[in-house]
Structure formats: structure tokens, C-alpha cells
Amino acid sequence: MTDHNEKYYVPEQSPWPIVGAIAFFLIAVGAGNLVAQISQSGTGGWGRYVLYTGIALIIFMLFGWFRDQIKESTTGMHNHQLGVSYRQGMSWFIFSEVMFFAAFFGALFYTRTISVPWLAGAGNNAMTAAVLWPNFEAIWPLTTTPSGQTTEAMGYQGLPLINTLILLVSSITVHFAHTGLELNKRGQLKVMLAITVLLGCIFLALQVMEYIHAYRDLDLRLDSGVYGNTFYLLTGFHGLHVFLGTVFLFIMLLRIFAGHFDSSNHFAFQAASWYWHFVDVVWLCLFIFVYIL
């Protein structure tokens, strides 16, 4: 909208999107087949190979696409306006991710405040409760489901609390990495970013330990009623995002060691750090609503 766009930049044709589309196709067919076969026979058939091919292809696509992109960026083909487009695009992408998590938080709030009390007879449901499951009590965490399946609740002390601190600290370190980049302090940038990546890895390792603890000691499983469902889907999708964010930041670290980015031109780094802050905020909501309350 200002004088930055005296001359527009329109990118050349690219083969990568169609490669990505084929990869999506293979992943969907493979995963669809694998899931159906596992539920029938307990083992996967050809679906898994299609899935793996798809995942390999999408990684190949990402490398190719971003390699072209980096080449164009470092040879100065991108202009200010394109940078703004990228930043706005990333912001809207993060907003869409927020809405994805909102669906699962919505399910959590609904089951806690509506479906579980109703099943125990709240509102005008006294007869339903009396006829269906007269012994069912509405408590949260739902350690005994209406059908009688039992589990133990995961407390917030211990691993979850440590993980909260780790993510909070990592959000601070990634911020200082960012200021390091903006002030051209490459040393601070490298150290702070490396610490962030390390903290991301520690978080993931601790979460794996937490899952093992949940399955082995608490009998808290994915199929342990809505408490287990919401617990694993929320923390699981969050963990997946931490994993992707860590990979994203790690690639930024490699690029920084390769001498990429300067104080004014660092969209990819900025996107990675925004993503990391987003993952951190989601975790804070998780910690409050899944673990503490």
C-alpha cells in the first residue's frame, strides 16, 4: 500500500506444489487404508508403505520448495511487499491452528460441564441417569466412566509442571535469540536458539516419559473415556506441534550457522519464533484446563 511496491514480484512457475499434492494423496490413501486394516486385523497391509512414500515425498517437496525459496531470497529477488505477505500468511495460519485446538478445548469444556453432569442426572436428566447408569457419579477428572471403566487422573505436579517451566523458559530464550538477530549479535542468537531447540527436545522426552507413566502406572489410556480422550488428543496434538516447532527452529539454527538472515531479512526465523510462542500459549491453556482444573 505504500511506495515499497513500485515494482511487483511474481514468482516463476514451480513443480513443487504438484509434488506436494501427490504426497498429500499418498498420505491420505495410505493412512486411510492403514487405519482401516489395523482395526480389522491388528496389522497394517500395503497402506503403510503408501503412507511412508507419501511422507518421504512431502519431506522431499519441502526441501525442494524451500531450497528454491531460499535461493530466490538470498539473491535478492524478494521485495518488502512479499515479506509482508509471508508474515500475514503465517499469522493467519497460526490463527487457523488456534481454531483447530479450539475444537478440542470445546469438546473438553462440553464434556466437563454438560455431558458428564447430564449423564449423572443433572438438569432434567434424572430419569435417564436412573435408567441407564444409576451408579454413575459426575466427577472430573472422570476416573470412572458410565460403563464402569476406571483410570487414575494425571496430576499437574512433577513432569507437567517441569514441562510448563521448560516451555516458558524456551519462549524467553527464543525471544532473546530474536533480539540477538535484530541487534546483529550472532553469538547471542546462536546460543539462545540452540538452548531453545534443546529445551524443545527435553520437553518432548519428558512428555514421552509422562505418557509411559500414564499407561503403565495410572492405566490412563487413549480409550479411558472422555478424560483420557481429551487428555491424549489435546496433549498429543500439542506434542506434535512442539515436535514440528522444534524441527522448524532446528532448521533455522542450521541456516544461521550457514550465515543466513540479517537484522532486516529473516522471515523464516520470525515465523518459527511466532510458531513457538503459539505452541507455548497452547500449552499454558492445556496446563490450566487439562492438568490443574
Binding site: S39, A107, T111, S115, L142, T145, L222, V226, Y227, G228
Partner: peptide, 18 residues
Amino acid sequence: KYFGTSFFSAAGGGDPVL
């Protein structure tokens, strides 16, 4: 359907209306 969760099944504390 495939992984045994019960978001939409009352037996596990969920609700088809959800």
C-alpha cells in the same frame, strides 16, 4: 471409530450431541 475414544459415546462420558 478406530482408536476407542468416546467423544460421541455416552458410555465413556461423551455425547453424540457434542
